[in-house]
Design a protein around this nucleic acid. Structure first.
Lengths: 355, 355
DNA sequence: TCAAAAAATGCAAGCGCTTACATTGCATAT
DNA sequence: ATATGCAATGTAAGCGCTTGCATTTTTTGA
């Protein structure tokens, strides 16, 4: 597979299609490859005169560095990975967007993978991204096997856990306290007189956000002097149709709830849709709440009362932490952001008829 | 920066943290690096006995190939890029998902970038993805400068244009005929008696899909014996709020349209929202239609009549074409898919009052 | 049984870049 | 003038993998 260096190459007629290399630029600018490399990567370690000459050569040749070679020699790809539970709906879209924007300002590319809320699949994706050369990883939530963390540690891959803040967890994270936020929302619900309450949540076994949210609802019940066990709970994967189904089931129950707290906005949108087709007034007969405050929440009608989550701040903050970590700087500890109740139209006082 | 080969390394105490290399695997399995490489990449070029031995060594050492080295030596990254106009809403989500799924089945990673519907930004993204080592690219629509295409040609980057099928365009593409589809929808609208019609479209100067759709509407007008100039047109970027605003403006006009055809579902959702807050009945007073048939179309109420687009087929098909191209096989020409009107609730007959 | 063909394996030359270390050239201090 | 320090540049050794070609081993057919 002889391809030869640029000198040899110029003797070959068939080589005209090859892309220019650092060496081509170097010889054209009359300097060494080291100087070209430095001109490109550490401009101020080179005198202005040579730098200009190098840049001119780069332009004339249309040179662009070879990704693989750069990665191999520098031992870094300038690629960060993000593994989010789903791309199917917009839950993580805004946060991810902010993450990417911040990284790209630092010359870093983002590689995105999704785990479909499965721990197994997530582990596979982690391996895949690391294999792809990811320099650092954004992870959602703390739930993960020890082996997974061991792998990350062993490969020395900087990583940060986002979308959650849990002071009891040791890992670097950025997010909000899901439990506290859900408790605050539930407080509002209770204040409005609701006593028969249901929660529609995702499977809580591999999802600490969902688990914490449910806990939060129970905390609020307890605080209000009610029994947490009285909470009617349905676990179902996040999706419009599952939300609709769960709502329908709830409405058929003997002890029909007057307020249905959904684990996220997608579920709530489904519930809302079902309420409409069942002819149930919201919030007249039944109140519905969501969580996340994605765009959908504003579009549905009536507009969804939900928990506003600092998507963009989490994305940007995660990027910042990861960059610090990669550069061996002090990231400065986990950061807690606020999530607050976003009042809209689907939450109202319990109606007299159903009391 | 001496790191030494594996033999030397074993003499260094500080080397314990280094990741195993091909050479480590080779010496452990008692074969050459070439054999290890082949066991991994072309298993059937190696006898079963050695392959097993190699695989065992791989497992024991926890070996994983170095991405950069692999890319450099093999001159391919097994990464394809996709540049879509936006990630902010779900327009391209399903198609992209299908694209990724198909690629990942072939061991290819997808790199996604968005252009925000800007030709300039798109060109930058193309360069970025190529710099990142993308082996092939998925592009949306034909509109693009000759330089951009020249660049792709020069670097010999296989690429395919998706979301459109236009028999007058020379490039390999997969998609549907936007013009025909919009014409079909407009036919329905005209059949229902509408004569005062508005189109809310994206900026058509850098967006061939939007341009074609508008043309389609005009075609239908012409066919029905009406003057295409009578179509009321508003150009505005795709977004919920812009859809709402455009609708509001339209409703304030002297010659108020009885049907508002939106360039996509996002715009239509905005229009619908505004209709609601304006107290305008849909489709009683005014009909509204969308385009794309994303999830949103089903969720809003009344549910959106729109054009169903074969998202998944386009994504999967594009992946297939790209793989063929990269492997030097015959992709077999552009493919036209069907897009058909999806009837729901927002399109109805023109009401008497407004006649 | 033995030559010829085919299969399996090894050798080693790159792939294009970064970077530790060496060298050179100059300004500054003595 | 000469020594000293620093900035600018060059030298060349890798980085870890793939692959053309050479060599060895096995299979096949007379």
């Amino acid at each position: 597979m002889p391809r030869g260096n640029s000198v040899l190459r110029s003797e070959r007629s068939s080589a005209s299609t090859d892309l220019p290399t650092l060496e081509d630029v170097a010889s054209r600018a009359g300097v060494s490859t080291a100087t070209v490399s430095r001109s490109l990567n550490e401009p101020n370690r080179v005198s202005k005169a040579t730098r200009d000459r190098v840049m001119a050569a780069v332009r004339e040749l249309g040179y662009a560095p070879n990704f693989g070679a750069q990665a191999l020699a520098a031992k870094r790809t300038n690629t960060f990975g993000a593994i989010i539970p789903t791309m199917e709906n917009a839950i993580f879209a805004r946060g991810l967007q902010a993450f990417q924007e911040h990284l790209s300002q630092h010359g870093i590319t983002t590689l995105v993978a999704s785990s479909s809320y499965s721990a197994d699949l997530e582990e596979k994706q982690i391996h895949a991204l690391v294999a792809r050369g990811a320099d650092a990883l954004l992870l959602i939530g703390h739930d993960r096997t020890p082996q997974t963390y061991a792998f990350l540690e062993h490969r020395k891959i900087p990583h940060v856990v986002a979308w959650v803040y849990d002071s009891t967890q040791p890992r670097l994270s950025i997010g909000f306290d899901n439990r506290k936020a859900m408790a605050a929302l539930t407080d509002r619900v209770l204040e409005l007189g609701h006593r028969s309450i249901a929660v529609v949540t995702a499977d809580i076994s591999e999802n600490d956000r969902a688990r914490e949210r449910l806990q939060g609802a129970k905390d609020a019940m307890r605080k209000a002097g009610m029994k947490p066990e009285d909470l009617q709970v349905i676990e179902t994967p996040y999706s419009i149709s599952n939300g609709a189904e769960a709502f329908s089931e709830l409405m058929g129950r003997e002890k029909r709830p007057t307020a249905v707290l959904c684990g996220n906005d997608v579920l709530a949108a489904g519930a809302l849709k079902m309420a409409r087709s069942l002819g149930i007034e919201v919030p007249g007969e039944v109140s519905i709440t969501g969580f996340d405050d994605i765009e959908l929440a504003e579009i549905v009608s009536p507009a969804l009362t939900t928990v506003h989550v600092p998507h963009r701040e989490m994305g940007r903050g995660a990027a910042r932490l990861l960059i610090a970590l990669r550069d061996g700087k002090d990231p400065g500890g986990s950061v807690e952001l606020e999530a607050s109740v976003q009042w809209r139209e689907t939450l109202g006082p319990v109606c007299r008829a159903s009391k």
